[in-house]
């Protein structure tokens, strides 16, 4: 019962925030609605026993990415309301609505058709499936930080090469952004094109 209440409140936060992002005429209001959605998703992560990802969601998304959005909005001075009444392409909104409803309808039809109605298993933590690292068997599932241990075992044993590649990606992104937003010598912005792709 308590899980259902938590799900309903968090889902309401997520949906209100998502509609607010799309329907707000002011970019700052969109960013703040995005924060509401991100916190709702973090609550759902906790309900799904992904405690570490919930913390990372709040820190990285709400703490870093939305703040970056707000910095750009304030620095560029584009924080003015946009007129959402007028529609330059008359067919654009009905077409977008039909396409969005088609996406949602098809996805929900697929989920409902393939659903298994038994409730989620309630347990202390996730079991490690497949062949895990040698030390993974020692992880006590009832431990209070079993989630972060399992995630770290999976991350640094099976996916360690992908993990190293993400560090390369972050270095490339930082270098590309520094080159792109440099004010003088705009020719170097053109040279940054192949770097990020």
């Amino acid at each position: 019962m308590i899980e259902t209440i938590v799900f309903a409140i968090a889902a309401l936060m997520i949906l209100v925030g998502a509609v607010g992002v799309v329907a707000s005429s002011h970019p700052v209001h969109s960013a703040l609605s995005l924060v509401l959605t991100l916190f709702g998703v973090a609550v759902q992560f906790v309900a799904l026993e992904a405690n570490f990802l919930a913390a990372v969601q709040v820190i990285v998304y709400a703490g870093a990415i939305v703040v970056l959005f707000l910095f750009v909005i304030m620095l560029l001075g584009v924080a003015r309301a946009e007129d959402l009444r007028t529609d330059r392409l008359p067919i654009q909104r009905p077409l977008a609505g039909v396409l969005g409803l088609a996406i949602v309808g098809l996805l929900i039809a697929a989920f409902v058709a393939s659903r298994d109605t038994e409730p989620l298993a309630v347990g202390p933590g996730l079991a490690i499936a497949g062949e895990a690292g040698a030390g993974a068997a020692d992880v006590n599932l009832a431990d209070h930080d079993a989630n972060i241990r399992q995630l770290s075992f999976n991350l640094f044993s099976d996916n360690v090469f992908v993990f190293e590649l993400t560090s390369v990606l972050l270095i490339v992104a930082v270098a590309a952004t520094v080159v792109l937003t440099r004010r003088e010598r705009s020719k170097s912005a053109a040279e940054a094109g192949p770097v990020e792709s």
Partner: peptide
């Protein structure tokens, strides 16, 4: 809440 609930919520947010 079953997995289907979460997936439907995710589908609606994706559509929005």
């Amino acid at each position: 809440p079953t997995t289907t609930w979460y997936l439907i919520l995710a589908a609606v947010v994706f559509g929005i």
